[in-house]
């Protein structure tokens, strides 16, 4: 897939030549492009005169950076301590079943959902917890998962 880098001009102008900008820049670029492809990183390296290895090094170090295309909605399953002792594994299994994801897959084939894990969402008192985009859902049970997902699928008219 060809990517259109012209949308990045503004961001590059804003950050060029400033120290310590790599992380916020990549955050912004990821927001625009959806993820950081090899081509995008190579492009940034040329434009900003930062070694590609440095960009790639930072992008792979932080879990926030995604090197693959992501689904429209990001589902984060909390795997923190409080959620773990409250059956977070069961929630994750229920999500995988509901989204029909095979082992090793994280994005649905219709690109609607990506399933990831997070260390703690800071709402431990509501464990087990998941976050879909910016909305947090707590006190979940595996049975209740499909009802939550239906809402998102409904918006898509599916």
């Amino acid at each position: 897939m060809e990517q259109d880098f012209s949308q990045l001009t503004e961001s590059i102008k804003k950050y060029r030549g400033k120290p310590g900008i790599l992380i916020p820049l990549l955050q912004e670029v990821q927001q625009i492009m959806g993820y950081l492809s090899k081509d995008t990183m190579a492009y940034l390296s040329r434009e900003l005169d930062i070694p590609a290895a440095e960009i790639y090094g930072v992008a792979t170090f932080y879990s926030m950076f995604k090197l693959k295309p992501q689904g429209k909605h990001i589902i984060r399953v909390c795997k923190g301590t409080a959620c773990h002792v409250s059956n977070a594994d069961g929630i994750k299994d229920a999500l995988k079943t509901a989204l029909e994801l095979e082992d090793g897959e994280d994005t649905t084939s219709d690109m609607l959902f990506t399933l990831t894990e997070v260390a703690c969402l800071g709402c431990c008192s509501l464990a087990p917890v998941i976050m879909i985009d910016d909305t947090t859902y707590g006190k979940l049970s595996p049975d209740g998962i499909s009802r939550i997902l239906e809402r998102y699928a409904y918006e898509e008219g599916k």
Partner: peptide, 20 residues
């Protein structure tokens, strides 16, 4: 940007500087 070790003070400063 999502790395537990960045809570460690020297790592945190590396991260503010835009590095791993």
């Amino acid at each position: 940007a999502g790395a537990f070790v960045c809570g460690e003070e020297t790592a945190l400063m590396q991260s503010i500087e835009g590095k791993r």
